[in-house]
Design a protein around this nucleic acid. Structure first.
Lengths: 144, 144
DNA sequence: ATTCAATTGATATTTAATCTCAATTTCAGT
DNA sequence: ACTGAAATTGAGATTAAATATCAATTGAAT
């Protein structure tokens, strides 16, 4: 399914569906969770797929543009973090400062207010990251 | 007074208040808005303050640790973005992927929904970061 | 004033990501 | 299937941010 979306996206822009792009697309959707470009590059290498670092980065940009992948910009160290989002529900994160536990959540209200804020500012929002930091149910008792 | 806060922070950690740290602190609080470490470094140079790049970066980390400064985002292009937050109201950010332009915004609705989401998840929210990425008024026309 | 751990700064290094450009590949039109 | 124009690739160079190194220097507790 994502193949179709990507093919369509490329077609519209007069771009070509190459072996390399196909391979990157496939790899990105073959696992769940977050990844950095470098990880993706080595994953492909390990599978014996020949795709240069440059192509991986370039394809990743196209995937983001096409809406299949999102950049999750919060990496303290290392590179940018991405995840494939097509077919998945968007969600935000709460992160426990103590134990690192992550709670995913989604709020229609948050989404629509953000859309409105973008409109108010003549901004074309593509993606966003909302991270709430604090203490989870278990750890909050230890931090009075 | 940010001087006092910083001095106190350093004291607690057994660190010293050097000329360089004082200068960086002063510079960071001498203007409003966002900045990147490199900009800060050159600002100081232009003023004739001798502080090495290394010291600027190191002091910046200390300022973040002390709570006087926050890291807002990792800009699409260039370096990390910081702002001094001591004595300022909370706000969120939109960042243009193309030109790096930042729009600050605040929404009471967003804040209250987040509070509710925290309650729903038995989470004690302490702080949050919301970053909306996309294209600003100027750049959106170049990306049809 | 003495002492010693913390700090500085010039430079080298690391790391992510982009750029270059000749060689190759895709794909629309025939 | 063939052809040619235009897009794409890849190896390596390049850029840029940020960190590490370490001898010389400095702050501040005593």
């Amino acid at each position: 399914m994502e193949n179709k979306v990507f093919r369509n996206f490329l077609g519209k822009k007069g771009l070509k569906l190459t072996k390399e792009r196909t391979a990157v697309l496939k790899e990105v959707f073959s696992f769940h969770g977050h990844f950095e470009p470098e990880h993706l590059y080595f994953r492909l290498r390990d599978r014996g797929v020949k795709a240069s670092r440059a192509s991986v980065y370039r394809t990743l940009h196209l995937l983001v543009e096409s809406g299949l992948v999102e950049k999750i910009a919060r990496s303290g160290k290392g590179g940018n973090i991405y995840e494939h989002t097509y077919g998945h529900h968007h969600h935000d994160h709460m992160i426990c400062e103590d134990c690192g536990h992550i709670i995913e959540f989604y709020s229609e209200g948050l989404e629509s207010i953000q859309e409105q804020v973008c409109i108010d500012n003549n901004f074309r929002g593509i993606s966003h990251t909302l991270e709430i930091r604090g203490y989870c149910e278990t750890c909050r008792e230890l931090k009075p």
